[in-house]
């Protein structure tokens, strides 16, 4: 049983961290572009993303299921009930959170460090270097927070992952199944492990934040 729990833990970590990285891949350029807009629509767009943070996970799961189902438009990819759909689903789910958090980080970087670099005589490349140096740890903090949202969600993992043993079973779906089986002890062990993971991630984020 412990090798199975170990597998579930490792799988959850890999899936959710990949999802977080994936979300960063599109959120970073998007947010950077958004920051540079000098128009009122910027506030509306970021307002929408703020609202979407509360997106129900089962809704994201359902939409993805319909997309990736064999009869759906992306069915030919044959990705349903694989870890890859969970990765895609979780990355979509956390994107509004990532963008909202990055927006804060980037606004500050843009308003403060970009200008500062220019006042001190930096060319564009030097200014970018300076910004990266200043925000890299903030981006890391953003990813940790988003990661903990991804690893703690159930809806997407259950609907598009299918909770397949040894393949798409992650912390949350395993907990749901153990409850279904009436095996509360295993459910609690898994729940505590998940809690420990999330707690250490959040604590790490806090420590990094205090240091900078």
């Amino acid at each position: 049983m412990y090798t199975e729990i170990y597998g579930i833990a490792l799988r959850s970590l890999l899936i959710s961290s990949t999802a977080t990285l994936l979300a960063l891949v599109w959120s970073i350029p998007f947010t950077a572009k958004l920051i540079s807009i000098r128009h009122r629509s910027k506030d509306i767009i970021i307002g929408i993303f703020n609202t979407l943070i509360g997106l129900p996970t089962v809704l994201v799961g359902l939409v993805l299921y319909l997309l990736f189902s064999y009869s759906g438009p992306l069915g030919f990819l044959e990705l349903l009930y694989t870890p890859y759909t969970i990765i895609i689903g979780e990355s979509i789910l956390i994107t509004p959170l990532v963008i909202s958090l990055l927006y804060e980080v980037f606004s500050r970087a843009y308003n403060e460090y970009w200008e500062l670099a220019l006042t001190l005589g930096a060319d564009k490349l030097q200014a970018y270097k300076l910004i990266i140096r200043e925000v890299i740890s903030d981006i890391f903090v953003v990813s940790l927070i988003s990661f903990s949202r991804a690893i703690g969600e159930l809806g997407v993992a259950l609907i598009v992952g299918g909770n397949i043993k040894g393949y798409t079973r992650v912390f949350t779906t395993a907990i749901a199944l153990e409850i279904e089986k009436g095996e509360f002890e295993t459910a609690i062990i898994l729940g505590l492990l998940l809690f420990i993971v999330v707690l250490s991630v959040i604590l790490t984020a806090r420590i990094i934040k205090r240091r900078v």
């Binding site: 890999l14 899936i15 961290s17 990949t18 990285l21 994936l22 960063l24 891949v25 970073i28 350029p29 950077a32 870890p83 490349l125 970018y128 270097k129 910004i131 990266i132």
Partner: peptide
């Protein structure tokens, strides 16, 4: 844009490596 390109490349690399590990 160079910064974003750089980050993008790094992230894509990490993602690919993770997936391969996976």
């Amino acid at each position: 844009m160079k910064k974003f390109l750089m980050i993008l490349i790094i992230l894509v690399t990490i993602t690919t490596v993770t997936t391969i590990v996976y």
